[in-house]
Design a protein around this nucleic acid. Structure first.
Lengths: 338, 338
DNA sequence: AATCATTTTGCAATCGCTTGCAGTGTCTGA
DNA sequence: TCAGACACTGCAAGCGATTGCAAAATGATT
């Protein structure tokens, strides 16, 4: 492998000059910089990130921790982050917590500590106090994506507002019997559930003078199958049937559409359905939804980190950064049948 | 940050001994090893992977290159690989080629070269000769997952056999008019399409003495929406309608099921559908399928690499490693209506 | 032409760990 | 009792960059 000394020799300068020429080029005359760059290109030289990191303390690498990977939202966030990082010349090291408690511990007590990352992005993670403490002890920037994360700067859509927007859309169409399929705080420790969506839903109902019936809420696990089950229950009561469902995720909304079909109910004729996410399949199912943009969330998380990593961080933003969201009306919602 | 010298001091030994005690512990007396381990634990010491890598040449890090991340198959492979790597104390650095040509080039010409990974896993990638050459020039182990990759050890299901199995299942049920929705070689450069599945399909038909009609094949892009379109076309010809569809992926198969429903056709009453993958949603849709196990493929790729990374690799396997697959019959296939 | 300010460059220490080699100590067997 | 074998341990030389400091070169100013 060819190293900095080879380049220095080839260009007829010292390694110090090579280093400076290749990293920013400050304090190097344009002429030598060019010469060095040519030598480097000619020899096919690429800095050894290890040596560079060891000497400089900068790793050019960000750790991303996710609870699952094979779900659209998480994968999209990671994808967005990856692309942004690549543009900045950073690597992305992935930590996945799917492997159970033991794996989880090893991530926090071993992997993240070995001086390999400059910063950490935690996606939709429910972290224990201990884990947050460990992360802070690293003394490295940490940003969260999705869901409030105590004491950590977090990018997230305003879940309350999102839910209100979706619910208000249904109300505006004339619905008064609106059910909700959402998350159940108890069901999973690893994964930060946006429980605020339920509050937003209730708030919108109350604001419109509609009673929020306890019975019109069903918890589910954010999967299509879960949404299907919940919707079957909600729609299975002939005389008690709501005219609309607001599901806290598109996958659950899709499950609801399928459940409705199986019950012989037309969407949106008999029942309107709206979700949250703007999942890949939302277009396909003609699903109205409140889009959040996970890729952009990943990118934005990177921007924030890059800013903090700069020698003199300037524009410190607040602890919570609100991400955009947007109502997208497709065919799955309409005014209730009279 | 606390370093090896601190531990050495605390344990009353040299840094050399600490290093040896903490890595395998050979050539260190059990007593001192224990003492060192205690000191390390007490002080909360974790080796600096940079320094360690620089000195030893081992990175304890594997690069994984994927064409997309937000698709179930890729994400699952990565997840499997990640978990296996974590068990071995390795990190996983993710390279995603979604970012376009420029991004792609930078991965191969810059990122992978900076001495940060011990080996590379390429998932379902269609690599150019140049790229393979570059990877080989790294002189680091490289294994592929999914799809033949010229000159690279690749783990893959035998796509031909998979397709034959699925098709034979339909034939065994009595179908003689079997359509196929598969990949079109031309449609994407980034992504290694298992075109062999089409050959397997045709082979099974021929072996059963059934003519493979050109018109019963439709290319699609491996998405649900793509499968839906293709199926609509296939099923939209009243008198020409096949009685079964073999889709080269579950997502396309699900699209087909939805298309059939929209056309008022019953699955499996009027039309049987089988896919490949055993996607998360396959159970939900009662989809018969040939399961491949992407997580296990990721894990296995790691095993293979670990073996090659061992000082004296022993059991060299052949260039192609066949991964298991399995026919799973659910409700979407049955004998054709008489 | 001399002086001072400013750029450009090189020297050499440093980052934290690994590992070949040599030194010390202990245990055998003769 | 002593040489030889073997098991531990420490010394110190790297690994390949970065960077503070000082030296050299350049340019500006009088």
């Amino acid at each position: 492998m060819i190293n900095i000394a080879d380049v220095a020799r080839h260009a007829g300068v010292s390694t110090a000059t090579v280093s400076r020429a290749l990293s920013g080029g400050h304090h190097v005359s344009p002429a030598t910089r060019l010469r060095v760059e040519e030598s480097a290109a000619h020899l096919g030289y690429v800095v050894s990130s290890n040596a560079s990191s060891l000497a400089s303390g900068r790793m050019k690498n960000i750790g991303v921790v996710v609870p699952f990977l094979n779900h659209w939202f998480f994968a999209s966030v990671v994808e967005g982050a990856q692309q942004a990082l690549q543009r900045h010349g950073y690597d992305l090291t992935l930590y996945n917590l799917t492997g159970g408690l033991e794996a989880r511990r090893s991530v926090f007590e071993h992997f993240l500590l070995r001086q390999r990352v400059d910063a950490v992005i935690a996606v939709s993670l429910e972290l224990t106090e201990n884990e947050v403490a460990r992360l802070h002890a690293l003394n490295k920037p940490l940003v969260g994506v999705g869901g409030p994360l105590a004491g950590v700067r977090t990018l997230t859509v305003d879940d309350l507002a999102v839910a209100r927007l979706a619910t208000e859309h249904l109300i505006a169409l004339g619905h008064t019997r609106i059910a909700h399929i959402g998350g159940d705080k108890a069901f999973d420790l690893d994964f930060n559930l946006p429980t605020n969506r339920r509050f937003g839903y209730e708030a919108a109902l109350v604001a419109a003078g509609i009673e929020a019936r306890r019975d019109d809420f069903r918890p589910a696990d954010f999967t299509t199958a879960g949404g299907y089950q919940a919707a079957k229950q909600l729609l299975g009561r002939p005389h008690e049937r709501p005219t609309a469902i607001f599901a806290a995720s598109d996958e659950m909304a899709i499950g609801s559409i399928l459940a409705a079909r199986d019950l012989g109910l037309a969407v949106p004729g008999d029942i309107s359905v709206i979700g949250v996410d703007d999942h890949e399949l939302a277009t396909f199912f003609g699903l109205s939804t409140v889009a959040q943009f996970p890729q952009r969330q990943g990118e934005k998380a990177v921007e924030v980190l890059m800013e903090e990593l700069r020698p003199h961080p300037e524009s410190r933003t607040g602890l919570n950064i609100n991400m955009p969201f947007e109502l997208i009306v497709r065919g799955s919602t309409t005014r209730p049948a009279v």
